[in-house]
Structure formats: structure tokens, C-alpha cells
Design a binder for these strands. Structure first.
Lengths: 260, 260
DNA sequence: TGCCCTTTTTCCACATCGTGGAAAAGACAA
DNA sequence: TTGTCTTTTCCACGATGTGGAAAAAGGGCA
């Protein structure tokens, strides 16, 4: 991997080289020797050495004392890990949310759990009715939300009971879940169907259908939902909406795992 | 995170800054804005902008078109991944860690030794308490860590003495091991029990129970642990946790031996 | 042991390259 | 519209990165 390409305008040469170097280390299996990477990149050893020691000081590169080989450092690992958090969810999700909005004509949402609440992190608003359960950034109790229920339905029963015990239930409308039994029944319904419904449990007059989104490493990281006025998102049409939501949730799961 | 520290000798300023920038992006949840990181790092916006676009060209940083926020790029992720030639460990470990997390409700960890420190390479976070001893990529001195002790307990005494002599002890809390005698006693305890306990020896208030994972050819390659607040992971419950940890460690050992 | 060869590390003078102020271009809100 | 914010571009200056070359550190081999 020569560093052939001339440093495009407005690019910091040394940084560009350092990143190329990181990539070279990543490719080399079992670490690379200074002089080898230098040759591969077509750079003077002294230059590569300086870059490597700089990256070593920040833990992005690591010099194996025994083999004398350079490998990717732990810091590069921990920094890269955070890529898997939800910042990168939003990007791929947007076109999917828009498609979902256009299929259903209702508002499409993407949400995650954060400190035990469901948080909407992206949204494609209905073109017809500008009213959402929660605006982007808005928080809803997990058990009063379709997205929340879709996510925790993947948890073991024990964890769910625990959650209920820890934070209690907050019935906000007459239809909100009011007891642990109701919660467990509802959860088993969600598991059977493969999607969750918020049936006017947070705001009356608003209904919502949600499905879970899986990360590459098998964690339920988010949920996608469609929400709208109960008068339009009728009980009868829920299965229809659910089909679209489940499909799009699967699409997003795939998108965030596939992209490398 | 100011970049305060003067650029040590022999370090490339721009590269050092770029790496600090990556760390800042990683820390900021949900991305950071140009002017904010610039302020945080104490650097001119134009400089930060130049560094970011450089990193963007290589996919290490990514500019969310909608929110205008900068996040860690996919390349940083894929490069960081290779940190572990232990990759073949991490894959099989994930479902096992999740199961362990669900059995215990505490955070489950997988770690290896690297250049004489214990490094966490995978984790299933507790759903209830988001606080870990070390995040993925985090390093802990071997003798202040349950995982570290579990692994070196398989070494001959001579090698352990040698390690202690070479790197000394770093008592980080009042309970940390403080002398070679204490270490050897502790190690023999670990051997008797078949698991290691970090009893607030690295961070006070955090306790951890660990067991070793064996490779197909009988090398102690890793350790699995459960860690949590000392108030929840009480001394009385340690044997209970240990049962789960030992079981899961054995399961992983088997999984990585059976699989090619 | 001593010698030779390879690789890593340090050093330093030169000028390239990164720097950061400032101005321009956008982006929103009122 | 106008004002205030942020992002992006530009450019002259000199601090900073560069790479050749020399010194140091390994590592076989006899």
C-alpha cells in the first residue's frame, strides 16, 4: 500500500501519512516491522519511526517489546468501538425513515434506550400531520413507548421484572400498563408478533408501532417506529403498519452491520 | 480535554493533535461540532477543521450531513477491530458474555494480557448500572485486576515473581496487593478456588470475579469476568457469581477449541 | 568471545508544510 | 430583510516536519 496519492489540497501531510500507517498496521497480520512498513508506504524509515512513536504515546500504536513489531494500539480499539454507538445509526437510518414515512404517510422514528428511557434520535415527519409523540431528543418512559417495549422484549424476563421494580410504572393514560402482570403479558405479545404497539399509552389519541434494530454483535441497539393519530393509525391497520416497520427495521439492522 | 500537554520531544504535533481529536470525538456522545471540539482542545477552529477534513478523507472521521456533527468514521472502527488478533476470541465470546450478563445482571467482560497489562477486549454492559472498571480497550495493571490474576495464576511461581519484580506493584486502593508475599498468597488462593477476585483493588467500590479461558493448545489466553458495584457484588455473593463465571469461562474455552 | 550484517533510534540543517488570523460563505431565527 | 451564529476558504509567516546520515542496538555465525 504505497502512499502514492499526492496529498490532496487542504490535507495535512503528516496526519494523512499517520492514518495510512495505521491502516498498514491493521492489514499486516501479527504486526509489522518498522522498515517493512516504511518500504511498503514508500517513506523514509526515520519519518515512519517518528510517526509511530507519536502514535505510541497516545496508545494508537504499540510496540511489542518481544517481537519488536508494531501493532495497532488499544486506544485505536477503544476509539473505534464508539463508532458502533448510535451516532452512526442516524446516518444510515435517515433514508430508511424517509422511505417508511412515505410508505405509511405517518411519522417515522428511530429511538434508543438511554438511562432507562426511550429517546427519539431521528425522525422523518409525516407530511400531512405535524404531530409527534416525542420530537428528536424527546424522552418517553420505556414501558409507555412502542420503541421501548420492542427493545426490552429482547431482554430476559428477569431483567424486565427488575426494570419494572426499579423504576415502577407510570400510567399516563387510561390504557397505560398498570401492573407487572400486564407488562409481562404485553411483552409476550410483542415477542409473538415481532413488533410492539403503543396503544395510546403515552398520549391518548396517538398510536405507534415499533420493531427492534439489531447491531452487528447481536445487541438490540435501537428501534424504529411509525406513530400517528389513533384516528389514522387504527387498530385494524396496525398489522399493515407493522409489516412496513418490521421490514425497515431489518433493513437498518443489515445496513449498520454490513457497512464496514 | 485540553491538549495542554506540550508536545513531547520527537512527537509530530499535527499527528498528536489529530489523535487527541479522535479521542475527543469518541468521548462526545452523538458527535461533536467543529467549534465545540476546537474550544475543548484549545485549538483554533481552522486548525481543527483542517485536521478533521484530513481524517475524513481517510474515513477516520465522518461529517454527519444533517446534524453537521463530526463523529468517528468507519475506518477507525475497522482499524481498531484488528487490535485483537484475538478477533477469533471476541466472536464466540459475545453471546456468552451476554448470557453471563443476563445471569448476573452485572457487566460481563472478556480480557487478555497485552504487554503486561490486562486489557478488556469485549464487554456486555449491565442493563442497570452503566459503570465499568474498564471500557473495551481499557487497561488495568495485572495484579490489580481479577482477569489478570486469573490468568497469571496459571503461570509458574517463578514467572509471577519475575513479573512482580519487573513491574513492581501499584497499590491503587487501600486493598491493593502491596507485597510479593501478599501476591503469592493471593495467587495460591486463586489456584485453590479456581477463580480470582478483585476486591476493590483497582477502584474502590468496584468488585470483580474472574476465571481463566484456555485455548485449544492449553494456553491461558484470556479471562472472563463479572464486575459491578461492591454494594451489589457483595463478598457474600462472590461464590454465586464465581459459579456463573467459571461455567461461562469453560464454555468459551470449549467453544474456541471446538471451532476451527 | 569477536565480527559482520541488519534494523532501529537519534540527530540536525533546511525549507516544506502546517499554522492560525481574518475574511468569506452559509445557516438559522427573529 | 438584518443580526448572530457556525463552517469553510485563503494566505503569508515561520515554526515544524522532513529525511539523509550517523550512531546504537540486536542477532547470527564462526
Amino acid at each position: 500500500m504505497r502512499i502514492s496519492e499526492k496529498p490532496g489540497a487542504g490535507v495535512v501531510q503528516s496526519v494523512d501519512r499517520a492514518l495510512a500507517l495505521l491502516e498498514a498496521l491493521a492489514e499486516s497480520d501479527g504486526g509489522a516491522r518498522l522498515s517493512d512498513v516504511a518500504r511498503d508506504l514508500g517513506l523514509p524509515v526515520s519519518t515512519v519511526h517518528r510517526l509511530l512513536t507519536t502514535m505510541q504515546m497516545r496508545g494508537f500504536a504499540h510496540h511489542e517489546p518481544h517481537s519488536g513489531r508494531w501493532v495497532i494500539g488499544h486506544r485505536a480499539f477503544s476509539v473505534g468501538e464508539t463508532f458502533a454507538h448510535h451516532a452512526n445509526l442516524v446516518g444510515p437510518a435517515r433514508p430508511i425513515l424517509r422511505a417508511l414515512r412515505d410508505m405509511t404517510r405517518e411519522t417515522a422514528n428511530l429511538g434508543v434506550l438511554e438511562s432507562e428511557e426511550a429517546v427519539t434520535i431521528a425522525q422523518a415527519e409525516s407530511r400531512e400531520i405535524k404531530r409527534a409523540i416525542a420530537p428528536p431528543g424527546g424522552r418517553v418512559p420505556i414501558l409507555n413507548s412502542g420503541m421501548g417495549k420492542a427493545i426490552i422484549a429482547t431482554w430476559p424476563d428477569e431483567a424486565i421484572r427488575n426494570l419494572v421494580e426499579r423504576q415502577g410504572l407510570r400510567p399516563m393514560t387510561s390504557r397505560s400498563l398498570g401492573s407487572l402482570e400486564e407488562v409481562m403479558e404485553e411483552i409476550s405479545r410483542v415477542r409473538d408478533m415481532g413488533y410492539a404497539v403503543d396503544n395510546e399509552e403515552f398520549v391518548s389519541g396517538m398510536r405507534c408501532v415499533a420493531a427492534v434494530v439489531w447491531s452487528a454483535n447481536g445487541e438490540p441497539v435501537a428501534a424504529i417506529s411509525v406513530s400517528g393519530l389513533a384516528a389514522r393509525v387504527t387498530v385494524a391497520r396496525v398489522p399493515e403498519f407493522a409489516g412496513s416497520v418490521v421490514q425497515k427495521a431489518a433493513e437498518l439492522s443489515k445496513a449498520i452491520s454490513g457497512a464496514a
